[in-house]
Each structure stands twice: as structure tokens, then as C-alpha cells.
Write a protein that binds this DNA or RNA. Structure first.
Lengths: 107, 107
DNA sequence: GCCTACATATAGACAGCCTACATATAGACT
DNA sequence: AGTCTATATGTAGGCTGTCTATATGTAGGC
């Protein structure tokens, strides 16, 4: 997976994976890998700053928790995050339609 | 259309639009707009540098021509460009499948 | 003369994803 | 005890490609 291709779609991925249940960063990375069948292997240096950014934007709410000795920062979708996710989904459809109509010779 | 979303897909778009016939930059922009039903309106400051980049990479070959007093630089796909286009198409399918599998709740 | 469409090009800003590094706990194996 | 792997979070700095803004010039309509 080319790095640049992800540009601008990271937010949608993070919001989407948090739709059903709150997760912490590491679990999010695993969920992305699992859901994509291994195609998406996003480095920590991408995810953690992105989560912070989304939290600052009010789309996520983060909270520290402890499981044994390990500290985890668990993120959940805010209401604004849920709205943003709907927008991202819509944007994704427009995006694939637009690029697809150029790339796909039969259309 | 969000600017960042295009990242890493510009090459595929440009190669694809040049697949059938050589075109000059301005015509490429119009072709992208037409094929996408107006969704893709790529600024000149994006296209011209990108064409140069693809030419340096050996995927396109550019040639100056004149139509009346107007100078045009017409680009055509090289063999390497045709191969690259096939790779871009394949990458695009992988990409949409991967992202789609995360974004689409029914899958 | 002025405006729009056609046509190309560059400089500099900006954003976000990456690599690499730093830190720390838990558990398995030797 | 020491090592290794998996778990878990985080930052600094680099890279690169898209954008905005600007510049230049021709052709044709009004």
C-alpha cells in the first residue's frame, strides 16, 4: 500500500473502526490490519498523531485506562465524530466514483 | 473534492487519460473534468508539474507543437508509462478494496 | 480597449504520512 | 538472570506532492 494513497483517508479509517466500540491505538492498528485482510498496516507514527489530531478536532474523546500495569488511551466517537464519519463515507463514494470514472475504460 | 485525497492518485489519472490519445496539459484538465462529470477540477499548478515529473520518470514523452500562434506541449504514453498504468490500475483496485473493507460495515 | 478562453509555467505554502527513535510492561523461553 | 517478542504510547524531523497565487502570452468576441 503506497503511503501517499492513504492521504486524506486516514480520518475515515480511524472514525470507522471506532464506530462500533471504543478502542485504544494499538488495537486500532490491529483492527485495521484485520479488517483489510492485512493490506493496511499503518505505523504507530501515523496513528497516534492522527488520533490526537482528531481528538483536538472534537471528533474523538480519549481517556486513560489501565489493564494490569499497561496504560492505554481509549478513544471513542463523539457525536461530532459520528457526523464526520457519515461525511467521510459520502466523500469516499464520490471520490471512488470520480477516480473510477477516469480509470475505468468502460463507463 | 478534497485536495489531500488526490495524493498518490494523480499519476494514475494522468496516465489513464493519455491512454487512448496524446493530449496537451490544458486538454488533459478538460478531459479529467469531462470524464468525472465535473467532480475533478485539477488546477494547472498541479497538472503541469506532475506531467514534468512523469516525463522525467520516463512514463510520458512530451513534445512541443504549434496550433496557430499557440504553443502546446503534447504528452504521450511511453511503453514504461503503459506498464505503469497497468500497475496503477491494479493498485487502485487493491486500495479501494482495502479502504472499502474498513469503511463498508457490510463486508 | 477589454474580457474571456486557451495555454504553460514557477515559487512558496501547507499538511499529513512516514521513518526512526525513545520508553516501558508482560510473558515465554533459555 | 538475560533475552526476546508482543503489547502500548509517543515525538522529532523528513519528505513529497498538491495547492494558491502569480506571471506570461495568444486568439477571438464584443
Amino acid at each position: 500500500m503506497n503511503a501517499d494513497a492513504l492521504r486524506g483517508h486516514m480520518d475515515a479509517l480511524l472514525l470507522s473502526v471506532l464506530e462500533r466500540e471504543p478502542l485504544h491505538g494499538y488495537a486500532i492498528i490491529e483492527a485495521l490490519r484485520a479488517r483489510s485482510g492485512g493490506a493496511l498496516d499503518v505505523p504507530t507514527g501515523t496513528v497516534y498523531p492522527a488520533l490526537r489530531r482528531l481528538e483536538r478536532a472534537g471528533l474523538l474523546a480519549g481517556e486513560w485506562a489501565s489493564d494490569g500495569g499497561r496504560k492505554r488511551r481509549t478513544y471513542r466517537l463523539t457525536d461530532a465524530g459520528r457526523e464526520a464519519l457519515a461525511g467521510e463515507r459520502s466523500a469516499w463514494r464520490s471520490f471512488t466514483t470520480a477516480i473510477g470514472s477516469v480509470l475505468d475504460p468502460l463507463r
